[in-house]
């Protein structure tokens, strides 16, 4: 299903809706060009899960880990492979510690190809239509 959003707030709102259907243990892959709303979407997820800190871009740090105040999902792990490139492997980041845990949601911006093939549970595609409008495709009923 593709949704059109017209403000960063609407993009965050869409993330809030998706958050209510998350069980824990999911890996979300976010694809789309620079400025298409990926980090804004993760900020919305953070708000929905009760992350108190500002969700900042992990482009430089590669991986940011947030505590949540959700009853069953306790961590939001935010990865960004922008600087790593599409063929990277994530060895060395110790991602294993966070994979397949029911109290963790992992979100990956600029996901590497090998992850897309097998590990991702929810794929979300962002497209910048114009200055305001973003088309966001994700598995969510309207």
């Amino acid at each position: 299903m593709t949704f059109s959003t017209h403000t960063p707030e609407e993009t965050k709102q869409l993330a809030v809706q998706l958050a209510s259907s998350l069980q824990g243990g999911e890996i979300l892959a976010l694809e789309g060009d620079l400025g298409s709303g990926k980090t804004t979407f993760v900020q919305g997820l953070g708000e929905a899960l009760g992350v108190k800190a500002y969700v900042r871009s992990p482009s430089f740090t590669l991986m940011n880990i947030y505590h949540t105040s959700h009853p069953t999902i306790h961590f939001l792990v935010h990865l960004d492979c922008y600087r790593l490139g599409p063929l990277c492997d994530l060895q060395g980041l110790e991602l294993e510690e966070w994979l397949h845990r029911s109290d963790v949601i992992i979100v990956i911006e600029w996901p590497p190809h090998h992850l897309l093939n097998k590990n991702v549970s929810i794929s979300i595609i962002f497209e910048m239509i114009n200055a305001q409008t973003r088309n966001i495709s994700l598995p969510l009923s309207p």
Binding site: R83, G85, P86, L87, L90, G92
Partner: peptide
């Protein structure tokens, strides 16, 4: 050369 920083290679 690798198109980005690779943590393992950086280390």
């Amino acid at each position: 050369l690798y198109g980005g920083v690779v943590p393992e290679i950086a280390a």
